[in-house]
Structures are given as structure tokens and as C-alpha cells.
Design a protein around this nucleic acid. Sequence first.
RNA 1: GGUCCGGUAGCUCAGCUGGAUAGAGCAACAGCCUUCUAAGCUGUGGGUCUCGGGUUCGAAUCCCGACCGGAUCACCA
Length: 594
Amino acid sequence: MNSLEQQISLLAKSAVKALYDLEAEDSQIQLQKTRPEFEGNITLVVFPFVKAARKAPAQVAAEIGEWLSANSEGLVARFNAVQGFLNLVIDDAFWVKQLVAIDADDHYGRQPERNQLMMVEYSSPNTNKPLHLGHVRNNLLGYSIAQIQEANGWKVVKTNIVNDRGIHICKSMLAWLKYGNGETPESSGKKGDHLIGDYYVRFDKEYKKQIAELMATGKDEETAKREAPLMLEAQEMLRKWEANDPEVRGLWAKMNEWVYAGFDETYKRMGVSFDKIYYESNTYLEGKSEVEKGLATGQFYRREDGSVWADLTKDGLDEKLLLRSDGTSVYMTQDIGTAKLRFQDYPIDKMVYVVGNEQEYHFKVLSILLDRLGFPFGKELVHFSYGMVELPNGKMKSREGTVVDADDLMDKMVEDAKEISKDKVNTLQGITPAEADEIARKVGLGALKYFILKVDPRKNMLFNPAESIDFNGNTGPFIQYTYARIQSVLRKAGERASANAYASSLENKELALIQRLCEYPSVVRTAGDEFSPAVICNYAYALACDFNSFYHDLSILNEPDEQKKELRLLLSANVAKVLRSAMRLLGIEMPERM
RNA sequence: GGUCCGGUAGCUCAGCUGGAUAGAGCAACAGCCUUCUAAGCUGUGGGUCUCGGGUUCGAAUCCCGACCGGAUCACCA
């Protein structure tokens, strides 16, 4: 609710009290933006008062309208009543005042500090393959959520848990040993993460071959999978890793370093970052000891084969394995340890996990287990569960090579942006090739980020590689373009003396823009409450549309009336400010020209 | 089978804490650059909001049921 809504709400309460002797509840005061086909800025729905008034809705609307006109000290300039809808026209002076106030606020939209710490975990890659489009969605959502919550007054710590140990890493390591001939990122010219990913795929290929061979000798598939020599070797390697075998550990460290160098490059390009990185190899032992404690206090139990389980049937769930019969830990064990360390390291008030919706069960269980182990934060954890990115023929599968690679995709977007900008030589004349590259980078990545963030995070989304991501319409570049246009106008306007007089009456399109600007703080709040960058996208798009319409219809620099011109410049500058602010919450950079 | 999520225009998506005649973009078609950046603006066509009940002044939105699609229920992560 913004200040106008608050004022009207109070006035409306007074009105129904005076007219019908009704003490209206907050929920009965229903305000909405007036639909464009009617005159007015804000609309009061009067149906809730009809019963108390014992009159027809249209008459009630008219009576309240009269009362507001007479008692709002000029705020309500006029009104019209359509059935049960009271459309109020707010005085232009109010809007001009709002605009001046927005202009004076350097952090417009930012909510008050709340002095509480939110930790946001996102990305959380495995170190056996490069990042793909699914990770891109995770990273962009995680980063944007962190920005949005910061704008909502939280102190935010962005964190990453790197899944750097386990059987999947051993598979890549083994394939590299067997087929790699000592290949390195330097010798091959490949990014480290891609190099390792290639060997992960290679493992799977050779493994499948062995399975087929075993099945040809008459074994069933289950047995073949279990007994394939490559799998046995990988498991042996994992045991050696856990036993701190120096050779295996050495290879592991070396190959992980290659992967991290590759990830760092990708993260940097994507524009995401972390305040604190945890590694599973450093947290899983902590998890194990927590499980042992739970075992000692009777929270968990051990089966005859030595495996440790939690009984969650009282919570309506199943039994959950926490330690394998050979004593090695599983994903859940590690997550318990990581959570404990984090709460030791930071005074966390809210812990948010940005993880796909396929892991909803996992986090339900984690929450219960942490609670049982006596951690007060267990019940409070938030699983920010987002939908999958699907391709036209279904899910992406790393092992089967049906993935859209993150690095390739970013390359392609920047290339496309560059290609498109070649037709715009008029507006980009006089810039250096380096500047042109920088613009293409911002625009290409802006298109990608907006494309992903504009869809409701909870929903699955479809990406069709055959159709390139658009640069026209409801897109990142559209918003960047709107911004660049404004910057161009402002550059031409030159230095302006501040505190000039502004026009006191407004054109419809000016008013619509100011009203839109007024919505921004509540949009930031909603995006925070709902954990939804898409809310920011929708708003930025609407604001850009409003501006383009204004820009098309009204001249700024050629406006002869100085006060009108000043108002339009002020308005334009603040639209740019809010667009930049909104895009920053999405991690999208703005070019000054394009 | 249990649980969770989704189904809105040819396609991709908004709208979903109940409000006026359901919106964008893409694709198709027709216009607008001697005027501040045409990555823009304007217009046309395009809908059984999956289906059936219910709640009420009013339902795409809330409730119940069906159908369809997805996820999950591992000594995987």
C-alpha cells in the first residue's frame, strides 16, 4: 500500500462512518487502479458498504464520491461512479509532489533496515561437469533473490555449497586416468570444468559398453550394472578417497582446481558472486558426528547391517537413511553438517535454500531432522523451490549430452546482440570497438537473464534452442533500450539547474508514468514477500511501456513551455533511475547507449 | 498407488490474497522514421481461462470432484 492508498483508505473510512455510521474494517476498503477505459486514477469498490447503506451500489458510490470531494482538501479533484465502482481523479498537484519526492530519494524503493540476517544458498554445483541451463536458472534466481531481500532491508549472505566429493567425481577421475593421457586444460585449451565433464560423459559411455557386454554373457541388467569393472573401480576409488589415500586425494585436488577455475570464469561472466563458499568435503564429517549424536540420544536407530536410519513415519513420511552400512555418508548427512557449520559461523535469522522442486522431499526431511537434533533453525528453513527448465523433448540430462551449456549459451546471446547492433550504426556511431563489445555483452546477457527471470520461479519453463531468445517485445533489451533512450535525451538536455518550477497540470501519459513510479516500493516488497524476481520483471516492463508511449506522444526537449519541459526531464530521469534500480535487482546491467 | 505442483490465444507467458468487457510478447497482416535512439509506436485478427459441480451481488482467481501433464516417495545427488 502506498501513501495515496493509505490516504484514500482513511478518507473512505471517515466517509462511510459519516454517511452510514459504519466502522469499516481494513479488508472492506478495496482499492484498485482505475481501468484505463474510465476516467480516474484510483477506484474504490463500494460493494462492501452496500448492505449498511441500504441503497443501490451506484448511489452509494456517488454519495461517497461527493463526500470525498468535499472533505479531502482538494486531493480528490473529481469522481465518477459506475455501478459499484467509484473512480477518483486525484489532483495533479499531488502527483507532481510525489514525483519531486521520488527524485529526492537516492534509494527509492529500498525498504527500511530490519537488522536481521538472511543466508541464501544457491548454485551448489557438482564438480564433475560444467554448468548448464538448469544451473543458470538457479544462479540467476539465487542472485536476484539475494538482491531483492537486501532491498527489503535484510542483511544477506550469499553462500554456495560445492558438492566436491562422492562417486560422481570418482567417475570423472577414473575416466581421465584411463583415457586421458595426461590431458590438462593447458594442453587441450579446454576450460577445466568442460574437460572434466567430457570425462564424466566418457565414463558413462564406457560403462554402458561394459554393461552391454555383461548382459551378452547372460547376466541381467541389475547384476551387470553392479558388476561392471568400471563401477567397481570407481567405488574402490571412493573408498580410497575416504581413507585419505594420498594418490587419490592428490588427483582429486588437482582436478577440482581445474573445475573451480572454470566455474569462476562462468560465475564472473554471469555476474553472480558468493560471500562464503562451503565444500562438502569439509562438512560431511561434521554431519556424520551429528548423526552419531542423534543415534546416542535415541533420535535415530541402527539396523543390523550397520546402516543408520531416522524414522519419520510419525511425521507422515518414510524412513530415511543417514549413514550407509559401510559407514559412508549420504547427501542428507552432509546437509546436516553444513547447516550446523553455517549457524556456527553466522547469526542467521533466516536460511534460504535455492534448490529445484525435485528436492522438495529432501528439504522436508532435512527440516525435521535438524529440528530433532535440537537445532532451533530446523523448522524455520525455507526451501525456495523453483521449477525445471525443459527442452522441447523433455528434461536435460548431462550424461546423455542433451544439455544447453551455460558458457555456449552466453556466447550465443552476446553474438546475437552484436549481430543485431550492426544494423544500428546510426545510434552507435563514434564508439570504439571495445565499447561496442561491452554493449553487446550487457544486452546479450540482459536478454538471457530477463528471459529466465520473467517467468514465475515456481513453474517449469520451456527453452527451445531452435528459436533464439528474443530482443524485441517483453524482453531485457526492450527495457535496456528504453533506458538508453532516456540517457540520450538527458545527455542532450545538458546540465540542468535543479529546483526549477514544474508544470502544475499534467498530461494523461505523464500522470500514468508518475503513478507507475509510485508503485515501485510496494513492488519491491511484494517481490521480497513472494521471493519472485518475476514481479520485478513485470513491473519494469510496464514502466518501460508507459515511458515509450509517453515518449512517442510528447516531446521532451522540443517542448516550448519551460515548466513542462522541466517536468518531463525530471520524469524521464526518474524513470531511468527506477528502471536501473529494478534491473539491478535482477542482476541486469544497463548500457548508457545501444 | 501416496504426496506436491501445474493446465489461460497457434507458441512462450502475465493476471490467481474474488471485482468492471481476461492481458502482453512472439508469429501473421496493415500503418508510422526531414522531429529527442524504429531493439520503438499504432491498428487488425486470434479465447469453452481443461471439464463438471459448489460458495455469492460478483469466480480464470476460493472449495469439492474428474481428466491431462510434471516432480517425488533410493545404501543417487
